[in-house]
Design a protein around this nucleic acid. Structure first.
Lengths: 247, 247
DNA sequence: GGAATAGTGTCTTTAAGACACTATCAA
DNA sequence: TTGATAGTGTCTTAAAGACACTATTCC
């Protein structure tokens, strides 16, 4: 209780970003190759220390996002994810990271050439499965970020953040399929996104040409909470069936 | 990107706790009266700075919880909520708080007398409505914590954390009603908690005496994810109807 | 006309919401 | 037997899942 009896330990604060996007219909995460001391040369989430002059945490996340991508704040979704502060997570000392989740529409070109470090879009699969090794506890953070996005797709209009200003329903379905890693039934999907009033609204200019029938274009509606939600299909057999925990 | 060009600013880390419990069927939050410098005498969430020697954040939360309540770590639910780091939130300087949500069963006695500060269970209603003023941004944190609990009750077995080891279905219903602030239909509630396999399991010794028919006792089941979930009833008229945003 | 993509309608099953009575105990 | 609390069954409606065909454009 007597908080000020002993002098509190200062810690260093960083922001780390799980930036997700779709590239050729697959979920990708933006990673950078570290050019500095701990874990040099290893892949890591984009991020960095808070700026001197009392920078706000969310501002720092926006700044890092702008530095790593060509994205301005208004066309990306950015939200706080969680804090990772395990004492042993950074060999330099006590560094506490506020992880953020960012969702970006498919970018104009691979990655804007950033100054020192090269950034790359890596398939989420590669990161989550551990086939690519990440610095610090960044694989855990990335895993949490993807899981957060998966859940949020069910109940919020987050999916539209993966699309541009205007999008087709088929495009939106691709988002769900890529993030969830499942195939969805087109007819049921159409029914559900349209049943959730305020999720998507038709853009007047409803067409586009890709060699088939023109598709209607939509844009994000006013509602951020989906009702009814789009429940993610449960993969056939879940649980840890190692010994028989089932009913 | 060049993170180490300028020396990063150290910040002070605190943990703050939104500790929820039921008292006479109403949701309460544990608050302490501050005995120290900023906001002295004002109500605040229990919490404090991280201990010297590289204490883990979650350990610090457990420590604070133990200091303010008589609860040992194993009979309470404790999880990270979010980070609050606005530069202006603490007049002492840059203090970043990792907020946690704790759920406790109804305690043996009001509050274990703690050393310097006196703690008290305040009705959640009083805190959320702003009738009680809280130090720092603690009202916001408390609001977020309660909202988090409300949502999590829908999809997880969190409600059992409000109950003791063994509980009745009626008792569990009281939890839902208190946290959500709604009345529920007994028959539908029974159907739903029993439909969610692994949520509650019968305790062999199924009875108790309170002047009526004995109730069967249950304990928390192995599943922490509820399926089907117990969807919270939507209050009749939501939305900002100020101008007519409806469909 | 054929290839390619967009869009829709029906049936079945599951779960939600509304609703009122029977069961068991203590005094 | 009465008061008090515990427990249950049915009907209607909403939404999920499965499933196959029609529509529009470009070539």
């Amino acid at each position: 209780m007597q908080h000020d009896a002993w002098s509190p330990t200062p810690v260093l604060l960083t922001v780390d970003l799980v930036i997700l996007t779709l590239r050729d219909s697959r979920l990708h995460i933006l990673l950078v190759k570290r050019g500095e001391d701990p874990f040099q040369g290893m892949l890591a989430l984009p991020g960095g220390f808070l700026n001197h002059d009392g920078e706000e945490i969310l501002d720092a996340a926006h700044r890092e996002l702008a530095e790593e991508t060509a994205l301005t704040s208004d066309c990306v979704h950015l939200e706080q994810l969680a804090v990772y502060g395990e004492a042993s997570r950074d060999p330099r000392g006590r560094v506490v990271s506020v992880a953020h989740l960012a969702i970006a529409p498919e970018l104009p070109d691979p990655v804007a050439g950033t100054d020192a470090t090269d950034a790359a879009w890596i398939p989420a699969e590669t990161v989550l499965s551990g086939k690519a090794a990440l610095a610090f506890d960044h694989r855990r953070i990335a895993t949490d970020g993807v899981e957060h996005a998966r859940t949020k797709l069910e109940f919020s209009s987050l999916a539209t953040a993966f699309c541009g200003e205007e999008f087709t329903i088929a495009g939106l379905q691709q988002v769900y399929e890529a993030v969830w890693g499942t195939r969805l039934d087109t007819r049921n999907f159409y029914r559900k996104v349209q049943a959730a009033k305020g999720f998507i609204i038709p853009a007047g200019t409803d067409r586009r040409s890709t060699g088939g029938r023109p598709a209607r274009l939509y844009r994000a509606g006013p509602k951020t909470v989906l009702f009814p939600p789009l429940i993610r299909p449960t993969p056939p057999a879940e649980e840890e069936n190692t010994k028989g925990e089932e009913e």
